[in-house]
Design a protein around this nucleic acid. Structure first.
Lengths: 212, 212
DNA sequence: AATAATTTTGACTATATGGTCAAGTATTGT
DNA sequence: ACAATACTTGACCATATAGTCAAAATTATT
């Protein structure tokens, strides 16, 4: 067996197990909260003995940090979908679409994120004060310009951003409630499409743009 | 000392301590989650010895149930502010106002509620399937009527309700993030007024109503 | 084949926590 | 004054859990 293959396998094993643990952890943290998530349960979900989990991650907090940072990366990428160069209609539409897609594809990540903020952002306070504040400030400036140019109605940019965040993330964080009100069944593709359209329609119209 | 006064004092002591414990518990549950909330910490916040807490409430779960039910009552009362008889503009305006007021006055309750839903509603699933489903169905019917009468634009009533819930509750659940983006200082009265106005403006305009 | 490095895992430990209890103190009723 | 009821509280216990460890097993390197 060639060396490269063995090296590949070695690396692969480590990264595969780490991935399995982080994936299991995201789910367990989302469903039970940080304190309620036991390393034993994370191990069970990852189909590994508990001691093996501690071989890859020193502490539960380290696992949690990694989970949060993963979400952070995904969200930062989504944030770039808010491309102000495209003008208000396209920029807002695409950003809302992207955020809705994330709520569907990463509901557990969204829940972990929400819990992290609700508990005072012990891990990602730096990000809130740094990158997020900067990003928000930048987008707010551009939104303000749209207002001055008469492209959208005058509204406080910050509240527009909050509305987009809250509404889109609601479909992940409160997915259980939505499912319950949907007769106990998860949204179909068509229902997700309808949800995205509804959100975009109300928000775009709400700032004076023609929907879509 | 007359009997009535003594009886009053006795009752008062119990209800005062219960109130202190539930108030402390709401805060602790909101900040640490169910599993992370220790009876010791609840006791400390309530300025009582831990054993005393267990004298008034048999188990931690019982305290939690009581906290959740309290929030439930408050929210049901707010739900009645959505009075469809008033027509779309007033009904929506008042409901949004009421929900925003609750986010400001009961941020911890809102967080506990959010966590309860995120964890699969172990305690209030019955409520979701019963009273909430019924209330939503009823309001959806009325909203549908507004649409048929041409009073508002055609939108899926469920998504309009979700948008109102998510946006208003965001100011409580993500209050820490909002405060951080506000330069680390809590909203003033004026800022809360502005937030309420922004939310109402976008949503009302979003469904084709003139704001306010 | 022999050696080294990496991974696996059961058994163990220290600690934190929910809950109990009994002995006390205060309050209320007669 | 006395009894009964309600409240207070330090000490205690059983259990759950994060994290350790050493020995075994597997995999890589020479």
């Amino acid at each position: 067996m060639p060396v490269e293959t063995m090296t590949f396998r070695k690396k692969s094993k480590r990264s595969e197990n780490e991935k399995a643990i982080l994936c299991a952890a995201e789910k367990v943290f989302a469903e039970a909260g940080y304190a309620g998530a036991t390393t034993q349960l994370i191990a069970d979900v990852a189909s590994l003995p508990k001691a093996n989990v501690h071989y890859y991650f020193k502490t539960k907090e380290e696992i949690y940090r990694r989970v949060v940072y993963n979400i952070f990366d995904i969200w930062m990428e989504a944030a770039s979908a808010f491309d102000t160069e495209l003008g208000p209609q396209k920029a807002l539409s695409r950003y809302i679409d992207k955020k809705m897609d994330l709520s569907r594809s990463h509901p557990n990540g969204s829940k972990v994120w929400a819990a992290e903020i609700m508990h005072g952002a012990p891990i990602i306070q730096d990000y809130l004060e740094g990158q997020l504040a900067q990003w928000s400030q930048d987008r707010a400036t551009h939104i303000q310009r749209w207002i001055e140019n008469g492209e959208i109605e005058p509204i406080d940019p910050a509240h527009l951003l909050y509305m987009i965040w809250s509404t889109t993330q609601h479909y992940a964080d409160f997915g259980h409630q939505i499912e319950t009100l949907n007769g106990g069944t998860a949204y179909t593709d068509e229902q997700w499409q309808a949800a995205k359209l509804s959100v975009k329609t109300i928000i775009l119209k709400g700032v004076g743009l023609s929907p879509m």
